[in-house]
C-alpha cells in the first residue's frame, strides 16, 4: 500500500458516500444517471469475484464489501424507493449502456492476462469501469443546473483514478515485475474521459460560478 493508492481508495470511498448522502438524506437522485450506477454495480460484481476465495487483507475485504454494498443499494434506491425514484430523470438518462457492456466483454475475451473466467471478468470490469461514467457525463451535459453534490460526486470519482495512476507509476518503479498493461491503459482512458469535466469544474470553482457544461 502506498499513499497514492490510499488517497485513491479514500477519494473513491468519499465519492460513494457523497452520493449515498445525497440520495439518503434529501431522498433525491436528480442529475444522477441510473445507467452509470448500474454499470458500476456490474464493475464491482465482476471485479470482486475473488472476494471469498483470495484473502488479501482485512482492509481489502472491507472496502470490497463497501463498494459492492453501496453500488447495489444506490441502484436499489433509484429503482425501488418510492421517493427517490420520482426524482430520477428517465427521459434524459437514455444512454444505451448495452453498447458499452458488449464491446468491453468482447475486448476482455481477446485482451486478458489469462483466458480463464476470473481473468476475463477482471479485464471486463476494468474496461467497463473506464467507460461507465459516460452516461453520467452525457446526463450532466443535458441537465443544465448541476447541483453541488452531483458535481462533487463526479469530481471525486474522476480524482480517485488519477491518484491510482500515480500509484501505478510508484509501484512500477518500486516493485520488480509489477506490470499490468490492462489496468494502466484502462485507468488512463478512464481519467482522460474526465478531462473536460475537470476543466469546467475547476473553472466554475475558480470563478465561483455554478458548474455549467456546454451543450
Amino acid at each position: 500500500m502506498n499513499i497514492f493508492r490510499l488517497a485513491g481508495d479514500m477519494t473513491h470511498l468519499m465519492s460513494v458516500l457523497v452520493l449515498l448522502l445525497k440520495i439518503h438524506t434529501i431522498k433525491s437522485c436528480a442529475g444522477i444517471s441510473l445507467k452509470t450506477q448500474e454499470l458500476y454495480a456490474l464493475v464491482f460484481a465482476t471485479r470482486y469475484l475473488d472476494i471469498f476465495t483470495d484473502f488479501i487483507s482485512v482492509y481489502n475485504t472491507i472496502m470490497k464489501l463497501i463498494f459492492l454494498g453501496s453500488s447495489f443499494s444506490i441502484v436499489w434506491y433509484m429503482r425501488r424507493h418510492k421517493l427517490v425514484r420520482r426524482s430520477y430523470d428517465k427521459e434524459q438518462d437514455t444512454f444505451r449502456h448495452f453498447f458499452l457492456v458488449l464491446p468491453c466483454l468482447l475486448l476482455a475475451l481477446v485482451m486478458n492476462e489469462k483466458f480463464t473466467f476470473k481473468e476475463v471478468m477482471w479485464a471486463f470490469s476494468l474496461y467497463l469501469e473506464a467507460v461507465a461514467i459516460l452516461p453520467q457525463l452525457v446526463l450532466l451535459q443535458r441537465t443544465k443546473n448541476i447541483d453541488n453534490l452531483t458535481g462533487q460526486y463526479v469530481f471525486l470519482l474522476g480524482a480517485y483514478r488519477a491518484f491510482y495512476i500515480f500509484n501505478w507509476i510508484y509501484r512500477y518503479f518500486t516493485e520488480p515485475h509489477y506490470v499490468h498493461w490492462i489496468t494502466w491503459i484502462s485507468g488512463l482512458v478512464q481519467t482522460l474521459l474526465y478531462a473536460d469535466f475537470f476543466y469546467y469544474y475547476f473553472n466554475s470553482w475558480k470563478n465561483n460560478v455554478k458548474l455549467h457544461l456546454p451543450a
Binding site: H12, F67, K114, W122, N167
Partner: peptide
C-alpha cells in the same frame, strides 16, 4: 502453470 500474482488492488 504460471500462477498470476494476486490482484491486490480494489
Amino acid at each position: 502453470n504460471m500462477e498470476l500474482p494476486l490482484k491486490d488492488e480494489l
